[in-house]
Each structure stands twice: as C-alpha cells, then as structure tokens.
Amino acid sequence: MTATLTESPIAAEPVPVPVRASKARGGASRALWVLPPLVLAAGFFLYPLALVVKQSFVDKNEHVGLDVWRDVLNSPSFGDALWNTVEIAVLSTLGCLVVGFFLALVLSFVPFPGARAVGRIVDTVLAFPSFLIALAFTFLYGTAGVVNAAADNLGLGEPLVGFLYSPWCVVLAEITFYTPFVMRPLLAAFALVPRDRLDVAASLGAGPLLVIRRVLLPEAWPALAAGGSLTLLLTLNEFGIVLFIGAKDVTTLPMLVHAKGAVTFDYPGACVVAVVEVALSLTLYAVYRFVFSRTGAGRAGLVA
C-alpha cells in the first residue's frame, strides 16, 4: 500500500537547485501524497468532532438554538463535574510532579542495585490500561480491603471507610498511573546532565539540597513543564479510573459525556459537555505544544 506513495517526491529531493517551476510542481505533487491519510483523518476524526459541535446546537425536537447549552450549563451536575474534573486533574498533576521528580532524582543520581529494574517496571506501567489501577485500589482501600483489614487486625479500627469513593482516592489512583509520564522526560533530561557538574558543585561546598535547587532543578524545568502539562491533559480526559472506582459523588466531564451519551441517550446534552471538555483540553494541549517546542528549541540552542 505504501509502496506506491513516493513516485516522484523523494527523487526530486537530492537535486540541489531545481528550476523554480519544477520545484513548485514538485511541491504540489509532494503535497498530494499527504492527501490520503489526511482525508481519512478528516473523515473519521475531524468530521465526527464537527458533528458533535453541530449537534450541541440542535435539541431533541430538531430546534436549532442555544437551548441545550442553557439547560446543560445551568444544571448543577455539570458545575459539579467541571469542578471535580479540574480539581482532580490539578491535584493529580501536582502529585505526579512531586512524586515523579523525587523518584527520577533517586533513580538517576542516588542509584541502587536494581534501579534499572525499577525503571523498567515504571516503563511497563505506561503500557497498562488505567482501569487496572482503579481495580487494584478497590482491593487495597475498599471497605473490606487489605488496608482496612490490616488496620482492624492491629486494633486501629477501619480508618479508610469511604476513602475509596472519595475524590482523594481518584487522585491517588491517577498519581499512581500518571507518575511515569512525568518520570520519563525527567529521566531523559537527567541522563543528559554530566556527573562532573554535580561533583564540582559539591566540591564548591554545596550540599545535596542546594545542588538540587540550583543545579538540577533548572535543568529539569523543561522536562517538568512538558511532563506536567501532558499529565494535566491526560488527567483532565481520564475516564477509566473514575469509571472503575465508581464513586457516586465523583462525576467528571468524561463521566458525564458517558452518562448522557451511552446511558440516557441524550446526544445533544452529551455533545455540549463534550464540546466544553474538548475546548478545555485543546487549550491545554496548545500550551503543551508551545512548551514542548520551546524546550526542544532550547535544547538545540544548548548544543549549538
């Protein structure tokens, strides 16, 4: 299938200074080769998204207007879901940044025998489905879960009753699942820091905390920003963890889309929530891309 796609474009490339006309023609034909995948993406991704936006303005009786928007935005469940979504995402991201920075710091600069194996476990978690963590949490922190049972055995009562169904449990689960997303770029950034730099900093009289603050943190900042904004984006959109923990009070925007779209079949209402959610995450995504391109450029500047 792909064999047919480079008839002329690449052959035209090595010619250093082609005539202007042929260059233009080459550009046009090169652009043509991108069309098939672009058309597929438009048909199966952009077109449905556009329809979602359109549907949000058409109510069940085929009236066009802002009625659905007004109804949804005024409903208390929407406000709660929006607040829950943002709160959970922000708290989880902060948690991931703190935990991820610490874990990456130890793995990179205070390595222990087996640190590599730990790094690999962390990598593996990246490929796991997120609901797996939520499922595990029901065994760990549920009313009859391991932690409560252990505490009960020790005569401490059952301290975690209700924890499983609180937003905090969702936050903890998301920290567990998304910390690797922060660690990955951090580990890569730390690997580029020459060990000499830490040694010399210490010889100049700086203790570990000062070295972290003045030498490592400035190096880690781009990776933290990139990892953090990606995590914020993914936690805003997280669905599996919230669904599987199944707390009644913890409704997020994706949960609301699911409830309206797949349970009560209120497509227009679901579409309104979806548009809000997409607008939220696209804004964040734009920030992420901006930060990412900045850090990419920054690194290139450092090399040159």
């Binding site: 991704f45 449905p48 998204l49 329809l51 979602v52 984006l233 805003l236 959109n237 669905f239 925007l253 994706p254 889309v257 699911h258 779209g261 797949a262 497509y267 679901a270 579409c271 979806a274 959610e277 997409v278 995450s281 696209l282 964040l284 995504y285």
Partner: peptide, 11 residues
C-alpha cells in the same frame, strides 16, 4: 491525543 476517548466515541 488531546481529545478525550469518550468524546471520540461520542463523535
């Protein structure tokens, strides 16, 4: 990657 999976499904 920036669009929630439920929204992709809804679309």
């Amino acid at each position: 990657v920036a669009v929630p999976s439920v929204v992709v499904g809804l679309g």
